[in-house]
Amino acid sequence: MAGGWGSVVVLLQQVLTGLATGAVYSLLALALVVIHQTTHHLNLAQGEMATLSTLTAWQLLSWGVPYWAAFAVTLALSFAGGAAIQRLVMHPLRGGNALVQFAAMIALFLLVNSVTNAIWGPNARAFPSILPARPLFEGAPISGQRVGIILVGGALVVVLYLFLRRSRLGLNLRATAANPVPARLAGIAVDRMRMIGWGIAATIGAAAGMLLAPIVTLDPQMMFNVLPFAFAATIVGGVSSPLGAVVGGLVIGVVEALVTIYAPALGRELKLSLLFVAILAILLVRPEGLFVRRTGARL
């Protein structure tokens, strides 16, 4: 049956499209989880920092720097920038309570957003993609662009996951967040771990931004429509689970793509609202996320 076959292709197409956006959500969600695991902060300015990184990359490209060189330089700059922000902004405020730290991240959000606006202005810019935007081969259900996102995003996710779970540095990072005092007693350089944590998160954000830029509009508000989905991914996956963040991002990307095609009447505005109804439902039914084991609080 031709009609049946056609709808299967549409479905497949949407799932693949969703996986590509989902890979970006996963990356951003992972950045949120990494920052949380290394500092117990949740960085409100994460999206803005990613936008700043992406625009930096755009600037390098426009000066004629080759794509992969620009990519690498941006990652390095982002790491340095993230670490510097931790050292210069968050570190001096470490004595403050949660309210103070949250307010500090609000200030960061405003600062970074304002700076990107001042430098690059509100206009949208074109950002090249890793692979050409046309379908990989005649009749392929997915553009090369999105294949590139899935491949690079997927590779980054795997590297990060292994780094956090298997490497010594990753272990130290997690120990620092879990409980800084014993970590310090065990000889871990807690302050340095926090800087590294912010650096890594900024780097992941930069990668996510550069992957994302070709398929959305690159302007200073780029992340406003993305961060809610990334955040939703951390809720779906459980705020302390890197694997959960990844799976959560993919799930949300696919669901979003399917909703877009099968319930177009919702439009973007209502889609966002629905997303939060869904998040709320998940929180009520399974608050620790779908991928985290339950543990009890201690009295």
């Binding site: 949250f102 809610p228 209502l270 929180l283």
Partner: peptide, 24 residues
């Protein structure tokens, strides 16, 4: 939602709600 997530997470969640509803 606040019964389930606390602190900065709740802050971020409510911010996302503000972002989302703003468009509605």
């Amino acid at each position: 939602a606040g019964l389930r997530i606390k602190g900065h997470y709740l802050g971020l969640l409510t911010f996302m709600v503000a972002l989302a509803l703003f468009q509605m």
